[in-house]
Design a protein around this nucleic acid. Structure first.
Lengths: 203, 203
DNA sequence: CAAAAATTTTAATTGCAATTAAAATTTGAG
DNA sequence: CTCAAATTTTAATTGCAATTAAAATTTTTG
């Protein structure tokens, strides 16, 4: 039977399998769509039986929820590192973008695109939405910081945040693991997304 | 019984109901997620019974498919108008963005976010993907035109296109019909998304 | 190496939303 | 007003994937 949350936390075998499972699920959801992937599909990728998944999650809803939490966490991690490492507001934005896309296309992935948030249970949905809101707010704060320190031009902070986050969030829709493409994303995306933020050079 | 495609084309009652239905379905899919919306949900929005929907579509899969086609069509329409009206490459890009977001938040909407393309039947999926590819290609052509005529700076055309289209495609995730927000999108988005494209002024 | 705990499988069950068929109602044309 | 076609409803059915329980296997521990 599954053990308590406390025991799980220190148990690396269980934790590792769960993590493999979430990556497998994310892969399936991105490739075949949410409604198109059955638990059997996810299990097959792990060399397991569908019933085995229930040792790790209560149900399919929780599987999706955990996928989304995992995706949210890497965004949070990227944000945190950017705030620590960055100098100006603009620099922090660039770093956040670089860190986040690196993680998105890195070995820890894939991460599920969050298309089924509204279908989650109440508490789970609220949790994911709150993480999402916090992330957006943190990103907007970077933009505001940049405006204040002159590294970013005047702009509608909310809309600018929505635009950039949308471009990021959409990546799993078209990036399917091709390493060539991954390199391209890492090299180009931060610059492309931050290019519009610089103040006009006065001349 | 449902009539032939030919008859339907000229029949406005049928056509109008189908269109209302697709808008209702798009609304539900965006609000409650795909797996979270049943045909009953869609029917309720129309004051109908779930079984009535089968007069208009063969099954739920076709309902989704038609939603996606509708969304693709407005993108195509915006692109077409932009190519007609625009002057430079940059101008065409700006116009396309303006036209498309206007349509997205306009009275014809809402339009479904295309999160379940992989779950479509083979022919339907191919059709939607082909429309999608054609649209991307057309957009990239605008960028290339801009680079050629000097209105857009050198950049990775593919990645730039992916970034901008991602920002656009993600809008239905956070825009839920608030007219205030709609105005903001229309006013800000084209400028925000095109700001990074201009060549550096030499000084 | 034996026993206990953890993990996975086998084999049902089940529950819900999609779908269908036939009947009822509404609409529109003449 | 009438009749035929179009549209919707009522009332089942059904099919599939999610879920469950118990048994089997594997891993860990002392």
């Amino acid at each position: 039977m599954p053990r308590s949350a406390l025991e799980r936390a220190e148990d690396s075998r269980y934790q590792q399998q769960l993590d493999r499972m979430l990556a497998a699920a994310a892969h399936c959801f991105n490739q075949k769509g949410f409604s198109g992937t059955s638990l059997k599909d996810v299990a097959r990728r792990l060399g397991l039986t569908d019933a085995a998944l229930y040792y790790y999650v209560r149900n399919k809803e929780e599987l999706v929820y955990l996928c989304y939490v995992r995706a949210a966490e890497v965004g949070q991690e990227a944000m945190h590192r950017a705030v620590e490492d960055g100098t100006s507001g603009f620099d922090k934005v660039c770093r956040y973008l670089a860190y986040h896309v690196e993680l998105m296309v890195g070995e820890r992935g894939p991460f599920a695109i969050m298309s089924e948030i509204p279908a989650l249970d109440d508490e789970h949905r609220e949790d994911v939405l709150e993480r999402s809101r916090k992330h957006s707010t943190a990103f907007e704060a970077l933009i505001e910081e940049g405006i204040a320190d002159g590294s970013i031009r005047q702009c509608d902070v909310r809309m600018t945040g929505n635009a950039i986050m949308g471009a990021i969030n959409w990546i799993p829709k078209w990036y399917h693991g091709d390493p060539e493409v991954a390199r391209n994303i890492v090299e180009e995306f931060p610059a492309i997304l931050s290019a519009g933020l610089r103040p006009h050079p006065r001349n």
